[in-house]
Design a protein around this nucleic acid. Sequence first.
DNA 1: ACCCAGGGTCATA
DNA 2: TATGACCATGGG
Length: 229
Amino acid sequence: MRFLTVFERLLEHHGSQGWWPGETPFEVMVGAVLTQNTAWTNVERAITNLQQAGALSPGAISEAPHHLLAQWIRPAGYFNVKARRLQNFCRWYLEQGGHDGLSGWDTGALRHGLLSVNGVGYETADDMLLYAFDRPVFVIDAYTRRIFTRLGLVEDEAGYEDMRLRFEQALAEEKRRTRRAPGRRARYRGRAALFNEYHALIVVHGKDVCRKSPLCARCCLRRSCPSRQ
DNA sequence: ACCCAGGGTCATA
DNA sequence: TATGACCATGGG
């Protein structure tokens, strides 16, 4: 009961996050690309620019001249790279018939398809799967690695897929063993709902965790940190 | 003047 | 397969 325990502690301390911060599934996917190694406040400006330009749609992004698109998303950093990545993604997305065309795909095929787009890696694909397609895929990011290797729940050498499967399997196992009080309903019914809230909490908490020492007293030894029993 | 952020690709060995 | 260079803005 460790991964679920950490979840409960994070939820208790930070409250429900209700992610992803985006109006539509498409906006969520654009945000997933723009937030690559970038602070979210910068992504918000870029998305606002796209909205004001009337360009927050797959068609508009696909057809926009590179220099214009790059200018709109400039606040998000890496604007030349990300302009290309957004176009790669939007063109693929339209070729597959958009959300309606993709909604029938099973999760494995959809993940494979997303990963085939140049500029969409594991985390970006999983952000999209979980937050735009509501699929039960656990998202691993730098915060997740930092916190959970520090807690000793994941090996330092674990790769992305190692970690993702560890989370998904551990949570399934722990949930199976959990017995709720009679008559009480689970707050997070499906796996997707749990993964959604969990990853959001990790990010919120991660901003507050020291990057340097594995034993930093500021983060993992204080009462609010889930690393404390 | 640093350091960092909700990564990913490509070249090299 | 594994490491390093590169991409670039804005906040602390």
